[in-house]
Design a binder for these strands. Structure first.
Length: 254
DNA sequence: ATGGTCGATAGTCGA
């Protein structure tokens, strides 16, 4: 089974750049998409379904903002919209789907680039999400967490760790959260297969960041420890350009 | 230290 995570930076904008043609090549069984930037009624579901994927989306209350979707070749057993234990589902950042005993989480973590208030929201969200995952772990052993985490884990995951050490997305507290995740039952699938530097999933749209590969690895597919032995591969697709992010995939045998 | 770019929207805001 192949799973992809992809922040499309506006699903309608991505479609104008060839997203549907790419979907038609059947890139994965399950594709977790973030930042659809579309209301429920503005998601081009029929066009996506025509490529062979079922579509389940969860939009923000604010029009054109945030939003996540799961695209899959076979129908899930169940779809879970948002976090039922949370008061903060307004931004459409979480959608999950069960495929038999496999629990797929699709999360769009908040960004902290718009100031202190959003950074505080990000920390609260991180705390709540971690509690959610721990709770989930009690009931499910096979969990996949796809998403735009908006955090680089280590210095190897960012083009300039020194200049960005006090910048949101690479703050010590955020990196500690990632370290906590990866030391309490979850595996960074990409690093199971690739230990090389300069491997990124997002580049600023300012300047020539992408052309110069001045990027950040902020998109991840994590799996619960019992799935580690099932992993067969994971990689980034840096040449796919429907968005300022690129997709990454994970392959496992079930 | 500053400005540079997008997407979605109709304000600029958020990334």
């Amino acid at each position: 089974m192949r799973i992809i995570t992809y922040n499309v930076n506006g699903i309608r904008a991505a479609i104008k750049k060839g997203f549907l043609e790419w979907l038609s090549t059947n890139p994965a069984d399950i594709i977790c998409v973030q930042e659809i930037k579309a209301n429920e009624e503005d998601v081009p579901k029929a066009a996506i379904e025509a490529t062979g994927y079922h579509v389940y989306s969860y939009s923000a209350q604010k029009k054109g903002y945030s939003g996540v979707a799961i695209l899959c070749r076979t129908k899930p057993t169940e779809v879970i919209y948002g976090n039922e234990h949370s008061q903060s589902n307004a931004e459409g950042r979480l959608i999950c789907a069960l495929f038999g005993d496999l629990y797929v989480v699709n999360a769009y973590f908040p960004s902290g680039t718009s100031g202190e208030e959003r950074q505080t929201y990000k920390y609260q969200w991180l705390s709540e999400f971690y509690a959610y995952i721990q709770e989930l772990h009690k009931k499910h052993s096979k969990i996949v967490i796809c998403g735009d985490y908006n955090i680089c884990h280590k210095a190897i995951d960012i083009h300039d760790p020194v200049r960005n050490q006090n910048y949101t997305g690479f703050l010590p507290e955020e990196r500690a959260w990632m370290e906590q995740l990866f030391t309490t039952g979850f595996v960074d699938t990409f690093r199971e297969f690739n230990k090389e530097p300069h491997q990124y999933t997002w580049w600023s749209q300012l300047g020539q960041a992408r052309a110069n590969n001045k990027g950040w690895r902020i998109d991840y597919i994590s799996v619960s420890e019992p799935l580690r032995a099932n992993l067969r591969g994971a990689a980034i697709y840096p040449t796919i350009v429907h968005s300022d992010h690129c997709p990454m995939y994970m392959e496992m045998e079930l």
